[in-house]
Design a protein around this nucleic acid. Structure first.
Lengths: 202, 202
DNA sequence: AGATTAATCGGAGGACTCTCCGTTTACAAC
DNA sequence: GTTGTAAACGGAGAGTCCTCCGATTAATCT
């Protein structure tokens, strides 16, 4: 047993080996292409591996499982979205009254989900574990913070879950396809909900 | 080509053949037992078929797919629940003011979901198609009717979706396990939501 | 350069869902 | 009984997800 070759830098996650990084990139590219080409629910990880010229094992080591790959595909747009509500211009970002920010956030979230609809549909099929692990947690914290400010005394954490629950790819898809609702109608439904909640407890 | 042997009785679905009925029953029994014994997420239809001494094809012809079997397992308790809110004693059944019935319904729905928690968790993983095909549709119609009475002028159909959305096995499981909420806390969160909605638009 | 070693690779294999279709069987009519 | 036929049966097989582990290789040390 010898000493470690180099001291690990705390806080800096060990950088990936060159081949690993290359493969991660290639897998993401191939998967993204296949999703836009063939629709997302037929996305087979075996096929992704084949098209990317790597073994199946490689896909799973890099991304853990199907859900992990989905989260990676969602990542880029999601970061922009998060930047927008955390530090962008009002009313989505800081600077506007909490109540307005809540409505702006819900509207933007609808658009966000529609932009990656197929991916979110797939994501929502995964087990509880990861479904609330990715973007959801961030959205929840943000909304709960705004709600705590807009309605002091209420259970902000619960209300955040309750407002987030109807903004869900499966439900929205069904409202549009089966009940013929437009995006505007959905947004104003959410707006009414948000206003009812913030008015009731202030 | 000969005439049909007997005239089909309109409205009465052709009765199942004896062997078919027997197999359906046996499959349901076996599946129910396996769920209570081994937990529900490890329920393999191959294994159900083996234990029930039928071919896999039989399971799929009887129930269509995994979700179909799940719905059949849920069915008995679900019927009792529906009878309770459609024609049972108030405040859940008819006779109480709409606003009270809404709260009573949401509370009862939480209990309903917890009673068959494992089954509902599985059910929610299925695609959009069947998830909104089974109990959901009935719950939605009922709640929308009550809402239309309690808040005339509002979009009752949308509000029903919005109130139903947070009553969802995955979310409730997470609220309890990860955030340590009690069932009572969840119920009073829902109650606050329902009151905010019905107050805002009346 | 050459050696060392831990990280990475890749694909065989197990378990699962669901489909297809040739074979068997329940039921009704005679 | 016998017979005809629509319905039901059952299991092989295709397509998936994911795991495991021996072979390979990138990065570092001398």
């Amino acid at each position: 047993m010898r000493e470690r070759r180099s001291l690990p830098v705390v806080g800096q996650p060990q950088p990936e080996r060159a081949d690993a990084a290359r493969n991660r990139q290639k897998i993401i590219e191939v998967a993204a292409r296949m999703v836009t080409e063939c629709g997302a629910d037929n996305l087979s990880l075996d096929e992704v591996a084949r098209e990317a010229c790597v073994g199946v094992g490689t896909v799973y080591r890099r991304f853990g499982d199907r859900t992990g790959l989905l989260l990676a595909l969602i990542d880029e747009r999601e970061r922009r979205f998060q930047a927008a509500f955390l530090s962008g211009p009002p009313p989505l970002g800081p600077g506007a009254p909490a109540r307005e920010r809540i409505v702006a956030f819900l509207h933007a979230l609808v658009d966000r989900i529609l932009a990656d609809e197929a991916l979110f549909l797939l994501l929502e099929k995964g087990g509880t574990a990861k479904r609330f692990t990715g973007p959801y947690r961030v959205h929840h914290i943000h909304l709960a913070t705004l709600l705590a400010r807009a309605c002091p005394g209420a259970d902000a954490a619960y209300l955040a879950d309750a407002l987030l629950a109807p903004v869900n790819a499966h439900l929205i898809a069904r409202q549009r396809e089966e009940r013929g609702m437009t995006v505007e109608q959905i947004k104003s439904g959410l707006e009414a909900l948000a206003e009812a909640v913030t008015r009731a407890t202030s």
